[in-house]
């Protein structure tokens, strides 16, 4: 039988681990709520900008921005959003697996891939694959700012404009609900612009400066806002996933403590019985 003291220290150490996982669970829960709010707050901007782009393309059908023109695919860009920290279940792993499947497909077709990595977990993982990483940013924190993302995205947009890539994808985790997050790939470029159907009569804007210049600015901001939204959504996913992972860790710790407590009680009882037997035996000998 293991010594009672050993078991007691083990129980104490598991208890302190449980305290940590419980605290992490609660922190993740409150951070998740805030991230979800930010997710909601970012939505109007993307919607409005999409509407404006729809208006412009409906109003001036003769001009088409390079961002909306389809090309034969020889090389693609990928923006992959992952978390900065671990202990969030299988969130990153699932995302990377889905990316690897896509990468294999591209490889089979002989398509080159240029990566942009947001989040240090992604950087650590994809650096091993020896694929060209054109830009990256890590440690955005729980509250990503659009300003930090602009440069990182611009590298990919420039490559697209220069014809070095023919398509741009965004891979991130979609927040379905607290229990489930889904890896999702979204095509950013060429952008699919739907006509604004609510325009009854066709009229044109007064442009200041030219339509082309304005459209460029709008398109860039639209794509940036999509990446920003994905980054915020990924934070919500990270927190939800961490919350669930930490909850199951706390539950497991509880179970372990119960089991150890049982073993401890048995050991204690056995020790007492042994001692009694010894005393009785000793008394009989005298």
């Amino acid at each position: 039988m293991a010594g009672a003291k050993e078991i007691r220290t083990k129980i104490a150490s598991i208890k302190s681990t449980q305290k940590i996982t419980k605290a992490m669970e609660m922190v993740a829960a409150s951070k998740m709520r805030r991230a979800q709010e930010r997710m909601r707050a970012a939505r109007p901007y993307a919607e409005k900008i999409r509407r404006v782009i729809g208006h412009i393309s409906a109003a001036s059908p003769d001009y088409r921005h390079p961002f909306t023109i389809e090309r034969a695919v020889k090389s693609v860009g990928m923006v992959i959003i992952s978390t900065d920290r671990g202990l969030c279940g299988g969130l990153n792993t699932n995302l990377f697996k889905s990316v690897l499947v896509q990468l294999r497909e591209f490889q089979a077709q002989g398509v080159e891939v240029h990566l942009t990595l947001i989040g240090s977990k992604g950087l650590a993982f994809f650096r091993r694959l020896k694929l060209p990483v054109v830009s990256s940013i890590t440690h955005l924190g729980d509250r990503p700012h659009l300003a930090d993302l602009i440069g990182t995205i611009k590298v990919q947009l420039d490559m697209y404009l220069e014809g070095k890539t023919d398509r741009l994808f965004l891979v991130h985790n979609r927040f379905v609900n607290t229990m489930s997050q889904k890896a999702e790939a979204l095509q950013l470029l060429p952008a699919i612009v739907q006509d604004a159907g609510d325009l009854q009569d066709r009229w044109d804007y007064i442009y200041e400066p030219s339509a082309a210049e304005l459209l460029e600015g709008y398109m860039t901001r639209y794509i940036e806002s999509q990446v920003y939204q994905a980054a915020v959504e990924n934070v919500a996913c990270e927190m939800a996933s961490r919350m669930v992972a930490m909850k199951s860790a706390s539950d497991n710790a509880g179970k372990l403590i119960d089991e150890l407590q049982l073993v401890y009680n048995k050991a204690r009882q056995a020790a007492i019985t042994k001692e009694l037997a010894e005393i009785v035996g000793g008394a009989a000998a005298v």
Partner: peptide
């Protein structure tokens, strides 16, 4: 924006080098 893009590129290069 150009400066930010340069910085992002550099970060990626450094991360790749720092093995």
């Amino acid at each position: 924006d150009e400066a930010a893009a340069q910085a992002a590129k550099q970060r990626a290069e450094e991360a790749l080098k720092d093995r």
